[in-house]
Design a protein around this nucleic acid. Structure first.
Length: 260
DNA sequence: ATGCCCGAGTCGCTCGGA
């Protein structure tokens, strides 16, 4: 059976992590990659190296912060959108969307929202509401869609090593989780959650307090499937070995496989 | 209540991340 592997990866600086990115691409050969936190202006996106590795790409960068990209193996992603409609702050590059292999791929980097309360948390919720609106429009259009990225949402207390030590964090707040549940309520399926119900899956381990070494992780990178894709989901996982490399990102690549 | 560990920018520090 032929499958399509779609990976989301918060790379935390594409320039400082480029050798690691190329190494991971050659080893895992994902078909589609959603990258977040490029931390590079558009002119610094390393398109030559990525093309040399056999990938086409579209990107939406920004100096120093944020930045998202979609890579496609052996083909050029067909850009459908750069930036979220009615983005509360379009200066922050947090959304890009493209069609690959007949699937609409939305790549997102939701605002972190700390400290809370405050304007950053308000911005997180405002951005989330606009994402929900756009996601609803995508569903109405009836095409197969994957919405993948760093949602900065820990969906439940089962998605973190210890909820109590993060209870005041923006990632765990009831308002944040309500937004995520509202999104799922439109008809999206949390792919990894559905593959591994009740299991502890982590995609992020912060650099502090030896959290990787003690597997004190959070599940905040998610791939949401439109209803047409649910029956095509055949697998998923997290490339944990990437987080164990020297100078690793604090996130690990998180992926699904769809039958085609 | 805060720092911890990082990358990027401006350059030996701040800011932001989560």
């Amino acid at each position: 059976m032929r499958t399509l592997r779609i990976t989301t990866f918060n790379i935390n600086g594409i320039r400082s992590r480029l050798p690691a990115l190329l190494d991971w691409l050659s080893r895992e050969e994902p078909d589609i990659v959603c990258l977040q936190e490029l931390k590079a202006a558009d002119e610094f996106f390393p398109i030559e190296a990525i093309q040399a590795a056999g990938y086409g790409a579209v990107w939406h960068g920004q100096k120093a912060w944020n930045g998202v990209a979609i890579l496609a193996k052996g083909t050029e992603p067909l850009l459908s959108r750069r930036g979220l409609p009615e983005d509360p702050n379009p200066e922050q590059s947090r959304y890009i969307e493209a069609v690959v292999e007949g699937v609409i791929v939305g790549c997102l980097y939701l605002p972190n929202g700390n400290p809370r309360p405050g304007p950053k948390f308000d911005y997180k919720l405002a951005w989330f509401r606009k994402l929900i609106e756009h996601a609803g429009d995508l569903l109405k259009a009836g095409h197969p869609v994957v919405l993948a990225g760093d949602y900065n949402v820990v969906p439940t207390d089962a998605d973190i090593y210890n909820a109590r030590s993060w209870q005041n964090d923006a990632l765990l707040q009831p308002e944040t989780r309500e937004c995520y549940q509202r999104l799922l309520g439109q008809g999206w399926q949390d792919a990894l959650g559905s593959l591994y119900p009740g299991q502890r899956i982590y995609t992020f381990w912060d650099y502090f307090r030896q959290h990787w070494q003690t597997n004190s992780g959070l599940r905040i990178d998610h791939l949401l499937l439109s209803p047409q894709l649910v029956e095509r989901l055949v697998g998923g996982g997290v490339d944990l070995w990437v987080r164990d490399q020297p100078k690793a990102s604090d996130h690990a690549p998180t992926w699904i496989e769809l039958s085609i």
